[in-house]
Design a protein around this nucleic acid. Sequence first.
DNA 1: CTTTTTCGTTGACTTCGATCAAGAAAACAA
DNA 2: TTGTTTTCTTGATCGAAGTCAACGAAAAAG
Lengths: 187, 187
Amino acid sequence: MEALKNYFNKLFPLTEAAWQDFEQCLVKETVVKKDLILEEGQKCDFIAFVGEGICRFYYVKEGEEKITAFFFSGDFVTNYRSFLTGQPSEHYIECMQQSVIYKVFKKDLLQLYDQHQCIERLGRLIAENLYLTVARRLDSFLYATPEERYQELLQRNSKLLQEVPQYMLASYLGVKPETLSRIRARK
Amino acid sequence: MEALKNYFNKLFPLTEAAWQDFEQCLVKETVVKKDLILEEGQKCDFIAFVGEGICRFYYVKEGEEKITAFFFSGDFVTNYRSFLTGQPSEHYIECMQQSVIYKVFKKDLLQLYDQHQCIERLGRLIAENLYLTVARRLDSFLYATPEERYQELLQRNSKLLQEVPQYMLASYLGVKPETLSRIRARK
DNA sequence: CTTTTTCGTTGACTTCGATCAAGAAAACAA
DNA sequence: TTGTTTTCTTGATCGAAGTCAACGAAAAAG
C-alpha cells in the first residue's frame, strides 16, 4: 500500500521492519456504494485508510441523518471515539461510492505499539492530527455562522463541493437544505 | 508532584527512570488571579498540569470574549493546537484564581519522547484523551440545543456551576447571558 | 425514450436566540 | 455602614434558521 506508506513517511518514517509488520496487519476491503462499514451499536475495532472512495460519518437523531464528517481517499476512517473507549458507536459510516479501504484492527495495532517505538510515535502523531481536525471543526461551530462556514468551504474549495449532494453539505454545515439553498442565493 | 504522578499511573505507569527525567523538566509556576498564562499571538510552547486553580481558555471575536474551555486542577492546560502546529495562538488563557501550574516545555517533551518509550506512549494517550474531550464538545454543538447543553451540565453537576459566573457559563454554552437566564427560568 | 423518484428552490409563517434597554440583586470597596 | 460596580433578570423587538408546502429540475429506473 504505497499511498499509506507515503502518508506515514510524511508524518514519521517507519523502519523497514516496522513497516513490514504493519503491512502484515492491513486487511484490504472492497466496499460497494451505500455499504455501511460501521453501524450504530457496534464497537469500532478498526482504523481504516481510505484508498479510494468517499465515506460519510453520520448520526441519526429523531429520524434525521446528521453528518459529522466526510472521509476521502488519503484519510483515516474510523469512529475514533468508539475505537479508543470501546463503547458502542452512536454513528454510522457509509461508503458513498465504490471504495477500497485498508483496515488495521485494534488488537493488532496495540501489539504493534508495543513492538515498534516508531509505530507508537505514529500513533501519537495520528491522534494529534485527529485532534486538530475536530478542534478546527469545533471552532467553526463556536465562532462562525452557517453562512461563514459555507464561505470557508467555498474558499478551501474542498472536494465536498463537487462530490457531495447539497442536502448532505447542509447537514454537514449544521443547517437544513432549504437554508443552505437560501444562503447560496444571498451571494 | 504526586497528583501528576497519580494521573500518569492511571493512564500508563512510567518507569522510575522516566519519571525522574520527566520531573526534572517540570517548571512550577504560581500565578495570581487574572494573570494570563498565554496571550493571543504567542506560540504556546508548553503543556501545563493544573495543581490548583481554574483557567479559562477564550477567544476574542469582535470585542467579545468567547470561552472555549475551562481547565480545573487535575487537567492539562495548553493551547494544544498552537503547541502542536507551532502557529501563534488565537486564544488567551487566563487564571481565574490564584493557581499553581507545572509546565513542561515542548523542546523538553520532544526529548523525553525520544528517550523513553513509556513517555511516548503517555503522549499518545494524552493526545487521545484531548481528542475525546473536543469530540464530545463538538457533538454537543452539533446535536444539542443550548437548553440541552445546559441540562447536560446540570446533570454532570460540573464544578463549572459552582465556580464560574453565569455570564461565562453562557459564553461556554454558546449563548448570550440573557438567553441563559431565560433558559434557567424555563425549567 | 418515458416514467418515477430524488433533489433543489421559493414562499408564507413560526420559533428561538440576539439585541437594546431598564432595573433588581449581588459582590466589592470605601 | 454606604456607595459603586458587576452580574443577573425581565420586557419589547428584530432577525436568521426552521417548518410546511408547492413546484420545477435533475437523476435514476424502467
